[in-house]
Design a protein around this nucleic acid. Structure first.
Length: 269
DNA sequence: ATGTTGACCTGTAAGC
DNA sequence: TGCTTACAGGTCAACA
């Protein structure tokens, strides 16, 4: 479900309910997610959430004792609900708060994760990540330099978390359309000038998606239940056979690295 | 080393 | 109305 904008929208939705709140109880209903939920997370009971941050597609709930790391995988969702409300199917984990509200993780496919990072540790899930796309550490120049000699498709390249984090299947397709780059092209054979444009396009598209509340494809809702409106902005993703917004050619779908990929055969070279 | 593929798991939609 | 198949927002391990 979530790429970086959806995770950020989730963060913005839950943060006001969590920050400075005391956790009264930690509930592990289903520990078998992508990795088992460690009992280390139980020490959060009685602790205060000092900040709610994000790194890549990971949410970071900080406390005096350490950081709870949440990843939503493909289908994970966070809800803030009254603690006495009924547990839903696929609710796996919850933090109960002194306010009477609870944060619940619901994830049908269980590709998500709940991890514990002790104070002064860096969890290995976070240790090999590239820069955040919306910071100055990420530039088109970086894309250009890292891509030299690579033969993998440019779409796979920009989805590589060691190159830049947070660019998933939707926004990779959109950024390549915005810059007129054929997603199949070898990453190493694209010019510096085009990478400079691509870097900017990634920033602009992700930032806009965040302001629109993310992309709701099937069922993404922010923690307060609102859908995202970026779907209306999608130029190629999911538009197989529909006319290109620029040239009216039908949008094509192909498979790149096992992922559905959409492009305009006329506008993208 | 780099690139590609399968695997994890469940729900939903499409096809027969 | 079934039943079967393919696919879905992500990431990692294993392989060539």
């Amino acid at each position: 479900m979530p790429e970086l904008p959806e995770v950020e929208v989730s963060r913005l939705g839950i943060a006001p309910h969590l920050e400075q709140q005391t956790i009264t109880q930690v509930k592990i209903w289903q520990p078998r997610l992508r990795w088992p939920i460690s009992n280390d997370v139980l020490q959060l009971a009685g602790e205060q959430v000092t900040a709610v941050k994000r790194r890549a597609k990971y949410l970071l709930l900080e406390s005096r004792l350490g950081t709870l790391i949440i990843h939503l995988g493909m289908s994970g969702k966070l809800h803030v609900v009254p603690t006495d409300s009924e547990k839903q199917k696929h609710d796996h984990f919850a933090l109960e708060l002194a306010s009477g509200l609870s944060l619940r993780l619901n994830d049908a496919r269980r590709f998500g994760a709940v991890l514990w990072q002790g104070i002064d540790e860096v969890h290995e899930a976070l240790s090999k990540l590239g820069p955040e796309p919306l910071t100055d550490e990420f530039t088109g120049l970086r894309l250009y330099e890292l891509s030299r000699g690579k033969t993998a498709p440019v779409k796979s390249f920009i989805m590589d978390n060691a190159v830049v984090v947070g660019v998933g299947n939707i926004y990779a397709n959109e950024a390549l359309f915005a810059t007129g780059i054929d997603p199949r092209r070898a990453a190493g054979k694209i010019s510096k000038a085009r990478y400079l444009e691509l870097g900017e396009a990634i920033k602009v598209i992700l930032a806009k998606a965040i302001t629109q509340g993310g992309t709701t494809l099937k069922d993404f809702l922010s923690a307060d239940g609102k859908p995202g409106y970026f779907k209306q902005e999608l130029q190629v993703y999911g538009r197989t056979g529909e006319p290109c917004v620029q040239c009216l050619q039908p949008i094509r779908a192909i498979r790149i690295g096992q992922r559905n990929s959409f492009y305009c055969p006329r506008c993208q070279k």
